[in-house]
Design a protein around this nucleic acid. Structure first.
Lengths: 191, 191, 191, 191
DNA sequence: GATGAATGAGCTTTCATTCAT
DNA sequence: AATGAATGAAAGCTCATTCAT
């Protein structure tokens, strides 16, 4: 959130914070404005409507996630290393910004989202899994399934860490990623 | 939903349907009443407030899930079979009643839920995993983590089936459960 | 305004009064409600939106005008008498209910009216003029033109009486109707 | 609109156009500015407020109408010719500039007009009618009444031509003026 | 002079809840 | 028990106006 107009950034952050603390319903425009330190009308200089504000906020953060995935896939020697990179960097992203994690969850079933299902993370990761299957590294599940399983595991773990009563330690994180990898990898399997 | 007062049941079903089709925001009391075939005021004979209606609806369906889990755990010869029983019966439950699946998702982040995280399915399944670890069948992850990973995989798959553009076939379902099992089971692992 | 639901009638009258005194812009829903002695939300039990309230109010009063014209045309022996009947009864209607007169004026150029031009009074009066021309009683002008000229004369005179600083007496009214009649009638003309 | 400061003229024209196309309600200052090619704040260098902008625009165009009437009254041999001059030149003015026609209509009932009734065209035309009565050329109606009848006939016809679905041809125009004249003139009458 | 981002009062509308019937 | 008209606080949004640049 560095290269945005100052006010726009303040509005984005205000929205994200409010949604995290009070849910979608607890983020009326008046409060968003107040917490951003601007007047209610000011928001409408930057966004046509609440819907557009929410959708832009979503697009902005989805792009950040996509970029995080892309970077992780480019960093690492072998397939497994890349997988761990993706898993841990995405996990770290969500843990560092639980705002975004909560927002994504709420957005999917909000009146603002048309997509009922988050097909939003296809792209690079989808190709990565498809490729893994072709190479025989990954079990021959449909890539869409692999996608939701892996993304789901990241989400669940991040949520547990952020909101759960259970501490998720660094070793835990590695063990979880290992668990997921052992599930989806084809090693020693013949099906 | 058989042993409830007839009106109460109608109100529950109306709420569930409305939330599934239009989201939480699209289920105002007036519409809930209309679709249930009762007057708005009537709802307030059965529930003190909207909050109570929603919370009772949640408790009711949580109990159904809990019962489903309990039944699955009592049915099956060995540990692995019990796991598969839980996975597939819960999956079937959600696929048969996507209403409930969506409702749960929405409820967690609604103004009505105090718990931010679904610690709601502890109970039997928690004990089941704790026991599996003790017996050396399951990897020594914290049971809470196992819980969210497994429940997450069921949820993700059910959502993919119900809302995704990808068909999830019966063989797919077994392969996914197998994948999850292979991840969390301790066989052939020494960590 | 006799056979309407009591509240609906109060809302109609409140709207009409407010518009008469302060113009269209001076009739916000909050004031309409207040003056009608109901809560703001109550209006929305009777009307879907402000637009519909305004449009129904228009339709209702247009029907009253139409009925006034129809009654006037059925009462009177010859053509000229009918004409005078229409002129004076419509004039009386507007003078008795200046609310409606002002409302009509404002409605035509309001955001609520799609018709830019009041083609709304066609019907019986149009036929009356068309017939008068065929019989050679009325000058052979296009009936639409006759319509706006005559309606315009009624409107102008009523407005002058209601708002002007000049008193329009009963003899004045008859003389004005006579003036209009002498203009549009064909007697002694050969064009 | 030639001898005004360039910006002022642009603002005037922008306002007139916007009001014609979208009504008074569709001419917010921001749009007026945009269509005039200036910044919102710039308008406030030329006008103290929206009210003053509108009122000046009204005064400006009222003066144009007054001048048109004055010129028409000075051109023509006899009384009847002068009358026809006034009628047709004013009619032409409105048809050429329907902007102004609509603006006048809207202005009368706007929050900006204090006068509820257009006593604004008194002056020369009033004197002209008063004089005609004294000379026995015009029926002995109150001059105010003559004024609104004649002005109303011009307005109605212009509106019919500009917005109506009926074509108003040149012969039509002459016949209408003739109709009005035959109504208000005293020839052959003894009342 | 000119700009346009910022303001905030005020608008239309929604909806959980009440209560006379 | 059941009704549904009525309520009014609060939501999203507009727009005349200001003021630092």
């Amino acid at each position: 959130m560095e290269d945005l107009a100052e006010k726009k950034q303040a509005i984005f952050e205000s929205t994200l914070d409010l949604i995290k603390d009070h849910g979608f319903h607890g983020a009326p425009m008046s409060l968003v404005a107040k917490h951003a330190g601007v007047a209610a009308g000011t928001i409408y200089h930057y966004f046509e409507s609440k819907e557009q504000l929410i959708c832009e906020l979503y697009a902005y953060n989805r792009a950040r996630v996509t970029a995080t995935i892309k970077a992780a896939l480019n960093d690492g020697n072998d397939y497994k290393a890349k997988f761990f990179n993706v898993w841990t960097s995405l996990y770290s992203f969500y843990v560092k910004e639980p705002n975004v994690l909560i927002f994504f969850e709420q957005f999917v079933n909000s009146p603002f989202s048309s997509d009922k299902y988050p097909s939003h993370f296809r792209g690079d990761l989808y190709a990565f899994f498809a490729d893994g299957i072709k190479q025989g590294i990954i079990r021959p599940l449909k890539p869409e399934i692999l996608l939701v399983l892996v993304m789901g595991s990241i989400n669940s773990t991040a949520k547990l860490n952020v909101f759960g009563k259970v501490a998720v330690t660094k070793p835990d994180v590695l063990r979880i990623a290992e668990t997921v990898w052992d599930g989806i990898s084809a090693k020693g399997k013949e099906n």
